Simulated assay, not measured.
Amino acid sequence: MASKKLRRTGVSADLCERLKRHQVETCQDVLSVTPVELMRLGGLSYPAALELLRLVSKACSPTVRTALDLWRKKGELCFSTSLPVLDRLLQGGLPRGALTEVTGPSGCGKTQFCIMLSVLATLPKSMGGLDSGVIYIDTESAFSAERLIEMAQARFPEFFSVKERLLEMASRVHLFRELTCQDVLNRKEFDTSLPGNLMHRSNLLGQEAAVLKYLSQEFCIPVVLTNQITTHVGEKVHCPQRNQADVSTEEDSGFVTAALGNTWSHCVNTRLIVQYEDTERRQIIIAKSPVAPFAVLSYTVQREGIRLEGNENPESSFIYGTDPGLQPIRLRTGFIYNLSQATPSSC
């Protein structure tokens, strides 16, 4: 909230321009100076400087809400995934005004899940959508417009049988890609063994998370992120759920954790883990949520996107009382992934 621009707080355009000349552009900039300094920088009287501080403080402070208000409006604070069992567990769907992370090995359906959510967000509210646009930031060039169209037509054939609706849906998904050399350099990995790099990376992650949380809360929108996995070679982790018949002795020499580490894992509000169950079926694991129990659901990736399979009696699929930090992630090849150092307890 402190990074909010002054022009969005109700401050006059003339005063914003005067303060901008002195590099005072955000709420944090204003609140970091004294009333006397504001008088000098903005050409204000002392009462006017105090009033500006009061206005800015109110604008960047989170709105006070009671638990009763949240309970009454819980239906308006969720975004349906169109997967009934998952929505029920998450008390309505993905939270709006919070960060949701989907992490797991490549090829498990993270991109498919995001494309499906993009279609859903453009739908009318009467169909469970947001009747809104989508900002899709693709850092791996994995987004497919053809897949977006195919998924929309397969999942909602009657609604998207009209070509105009299909075109309108596609026009609402705004794709951003990082394709320049400078973008690649900006995404370089940090050698955490070098002094200061770990702290620098943690600070950057914290800043990015703060911006995303501000946007999600300010506009009451869902923010969904995908996270990769990082291999730690030469380390062993004991996992009581491990099937030794599926893993060779050579594969026991390493394990992986969700990328970005503990700093990032504490920033996300909901964490979904995707993993392989077998060559066709996969699993969604609710590993972290302020409202949902730890649960495991089976799914497959079809033309219409994600489809839950074999969860008619979902209680039989749940693993209550299981530490999400010890839940292994299974690859198609039989490797076992472990998030023991990456998944914190729910805050």
Rank of each mutant, 00 (worst) to 15 (best):
E251M: 12
D29T: 07
F335G: 03
V102D: 01
M116V: 06
L260V: 05
T34H: 07
M151Q: 07
Q23N: 15
V24E: 07
H174K: 11
I319D: 00
A170R: 05
Q23H: 14
Q217C: 07
D278G: 09
I273P: 00
Y299C: 03
L99S: 03
T263A: 12
S265Y: 09
I149H: 00
D14I: 09
K188S: 12
S202V: 08
E25Q: 09
L175H: 15
L215K: 11
A210M: 04
V85Y: 01
A210G: 02
F190R: 08
C78M: 13
I329V: 11
A245Q: 14
L194P: 00
I115V: 12
L194W: 11
Y136K: 04
V64R: 13
E168F: 08
R187C: 11
E251A: 10
K5T: 14
Y136I: 02
T81I: 07
E150P: 06
V296C: 03
Q182C: 06
L89H: 03
A121E: 03
K110W: 06
V162E: 15
L99C: 02
T231K: 11
G254W: 09
Y276K: 05
F255P: 02
L41G: 00
L272M: 10
R72I: 07
L215Q: 08
T81R: 09
K125A: 09
C181W: 14
L204C: 11
L167E: 15
Q302E: 14
D278C: 10
L55I: 10
F156S: 00
T9R: 00
T226L: 05
R72V: 09
S82F: 12
A210E: 07
R147S: 05
P84C: 06
S61H: 12
P47I: 07
G196A: 11
A48R: 13
D138H: 04
T9F: 10
P195K: 13
L41S: 05
R54I: 06
C60Y: 08
R18W: 04
R332K: 14
E37R: 13
G97D: 05
G321K: 08
F176E: 15
A152E: 07
E146R: 14
Q283E: 11
F318D: 01
T66C: 10
K73W: 10
F255E: 03
P328L: 08
Q228G: 01
G109C: 01
P62Y: 06
D87N: 09
G261K: 11
